[in-house]
């Protein structure tokens, strides 16, 4: 069974994001970039399926600028077998990404695609669901546990009220939530080995997809700032202020 794992290059989650002065976006120059944390969880899950003998090959896919190859190399160093890079300079929206991933799925015929539930840059939370729709496959979003069976998968999902378990026919789409696993760090020998693993490159044109954005971003602003308030001396003062000043209890 082949497993396809899309990975996105985003601003590292430890970086404090700054809005550009001209309000056209956020500052990306000289900012540390990394693999989207939810995608690291996807890569880890795919590698564990391979280690368990369920998956035979793990393919990491990334879409975007040339530097996305670094993100693919990270997945390869973790243990993915090979990479696919769809080169495109410019913004990509989830619908266009899902269409290009569908074309990659049509070529590679994986039985499982594991995606992060959302990317920490645009916070869209759409690509997995859209890919499932375009392929006509079942989807298990926000997964915290995956059990592979014969021609099907049982997935526990994190939902607002607790946990829900669904069963999916394969092939299928899974999107990962935080508690699915803890991603490994790549070892130095594996980082060296990853440099020799193959990465195929395509253009959106090769895949027959128009990547032009549908949404126009008019401006990007700083959120309203919250002012720090006062320190209270003790619990009695706190309760008194909540009662008489803030009037919330």
């Amino acid at each position: 069974m082949k497993v396809l794992v899309p990975v996105k290059r985003v601003i590292d989650y430890n970086v404090k994001v700054r809005v550009k002065a001209d309000q056209t976006g956020v500052e990306l120059a000289n900012v540390k970039m990394s693999m989207n944390p939810f995608d690291e969880i996807s890569v880890e899950e795919a590698i564990r399926l391979k280690e368990a003998g369920t998956a035979t090959e793990v393919i990491a896919v990334s879409l975007g600028a040339q530097q996305c190859q670094e993100t693919i190399r990270t997945a390869l160093a973790m243990g993915a077998d090979r990479g696919i890079h769809v080169l495109h300079d410019g913004d990509l929206e989830p619908l266009a990404v899902a269409k290009m991933l569908k074309a990659v799925v049509d070529k590679e015929q994986p039985e499982l695609v594991i995606l992060g539930k959302q990317a920490i840059d645009d916070d869209a939370n759409q690509t997995g669901q859209m890919l499932a729709a375009l392929l006509g496959w079942g989807q298990a979003t926000f997964a915290s546990k995956i059990e592979m069976g014969d021609g099907e998968a049982k997935v526990t999902r994190e939902i607002d009220g607790g946990l829900e378990t669904i069963s999916l026919k394969l092939p299928a789409i899974v999107t990962t939530d935080l508690r699915l696993n803890e991603p490994r760090y790549a070892s130095l020998p594996n980082i060296m080995k990853a440099k020799k693993k193959p990465i195929d490159q395509y253009s959106p044109d090769d895949l027959g997809v128009d990547p032009a954005p549908r949404l126009e971003t008019l401006k990007v602003e700083e959120p309203a700032k919250r002012e720090a308030g006062v320190k209270v001396a003790d619990v009695a003062e706190l309760v008194s202020k909540l009662r008489t000043e803030a009037k919330v209890i």
Binding site: Q129, M130, L131, A132
Partner: peptide, 19 residues
Amino acid sequence: TSFGKNVLPRAAALLDVQQ
């Protein structure tokens, strides 16, 4: 919510709409 986030992008893709 976990319901809307799960369902709506699937509908959007079928409608060829960027949610």
